[in-house]
């Protein structure tokens, strides 16, 4: 219980730290935010007006306070370039990005875990070698290139078997679920395959390690086959570590997700962030960066909690006999 409270406190502290960091990142610009946003050719009057609008004439602490206060109330302000509410924008964009992440992860798990088990259970040398080769090569493909190859294979118009749409997301969004999923399939496969390779590699090596242990011997002594013992006991034993690894992979997967959103012209959070950085819409960027960091810090927290929850060994050492 104490550990949980400490982890929660830590989470809040990390959030606070991130808000400071993101805020500071946009204040250490050479010159000031207003002149950067206004561009090189802006008149001094325009810059001054922008300063007023952004509240840059107030003290740093005041600016930070009002921004953080807004964020805590769920009000991220409006974008100065488009005049639209940032929260609404993020809401719309999330409908692309989060399904994409979920679908990618689903594909990764559906491929990665069975393939990892098969790799660990394979007995012949050529089979083991080819599983190893697949996992290494799969994990070494840049997301951008993987996406291009998939477009060349399956993309409508250019591909050899042109059956899947490779550009954009349907206008109606999720009103037509089939079409929406179809348009996310190629991007999700791109990130999914790369992540699958990592999960496969980890599952295989963790299972291999467990297979030499007395847990498996015990299972086999009780009449299980090697395969049964590995799948029922081995997988259960590596489950907590697997959850941690999957959580961390999620963080690694995000660079791929942002790349893929740009490549497949999906209007998601990642492409929004990149566009806003390109447009120098700095206050929007500030809120977005903070929100995304908060999201990933939360993922880290959830993974840690889950790890505690499904690993009985961590509960057993509560007395203080730590490894």
């Amino acid at each position: 219980m104490l550990a949980v409270v400490r982890r929660l406190l830590l989470f809040v502290a990390a959030l606070f730290g991130m808000s400071l960091l993101v805020f500071a990142a946009l204040r250490i610009l050479p010159g000031d935010v207003a002149s950067v946003m206004a561009g090189v050719n802006a008149t001094p009057q325009r810059v001054e007006a922008l300063r007023e609008q952004l509240g840059l004439n107030r003290s740093i602490a005041e600016q930070y306070g009002s921004w953080l206060g807004g964020v805590l109330r769920g009000d991220f302000g409006t974008s100065l370039l488009t005049g639209r509410s940032i929260s609404a924008q993020i809401g719309v964009r999330s409908q692309v990005t989060f399904p994409l992440i979920a679908l990618g992860m689903l594909i990764a798990l559906l491929i990665g875990i069975p393939a990892g088990c098969a790799g660990a259970l394979a007995t012949s040398r050529p089979a083991r070698q080819s599983f190893r080769a697949i996992s290494i090569i799969g994990g070494s493909i840049p997301a951008l290139w993987g996406g291009l190859l998939l477009i060349l294979l399956f993309g409508r118009g250019v591909g050899l078997i042109g059956i899947l749409p490779s550009q954009g997301f349907p206008q109606q969004g999720w009103q037509n679920p089939l079409q929406a999923v179809m348009s996310l399939l190629l991007p999700a496969m791109t990130v999914g395959i790369i992540v699958a390779a990592g999960i496969m590699r980890y599952t295989r090596s963790a299972l291999n390690e467990v297979m030499g242990s007395s847990f498996i011997d015990m299972g086999m002594a009780c009449g299980m086959t090697r395969r049964q013992a590995t799948l029922r006991i081995g997988l259960r034993i590596i489950a907590p570590q697997l959850v941690s690894v999957i959580g961390l992979t999620l963080a690694e997967m995000i660079t791929g997700v942002v790349v893929v959103e740009n490549l497949f012209a999906l209007q998601g959070l990642g492409s929004m962030l990149i566009t806003d950085v390109g447009n120098r819409d700095l206050l929007t960027v500030q809120s977005e960066l903070f929100l995304l960091s908060a999201f990933f810090l939360t993922i880290g927290l959830v993974v840690d909690m889950l790890h505690q929850l499904i690993d009985p060994r961590l509960r057993a050492v509560k007395g203080g006999i730590q490894q």
Partner: peptide, 22 residues
């Protein structure tokens, strides 16, 4: 230990953006 646990879930691309903006 605590700092590592808290920060390890931040994606590289976010850190890169925080640095690339300024």
């Amino acid at each position: 230990v605590v700092v590592i646990d808290a920060l390890i879930s931040l994606p590289t691309v976010l850190v890169a953006l925080i640095l690339a903006v300024p």
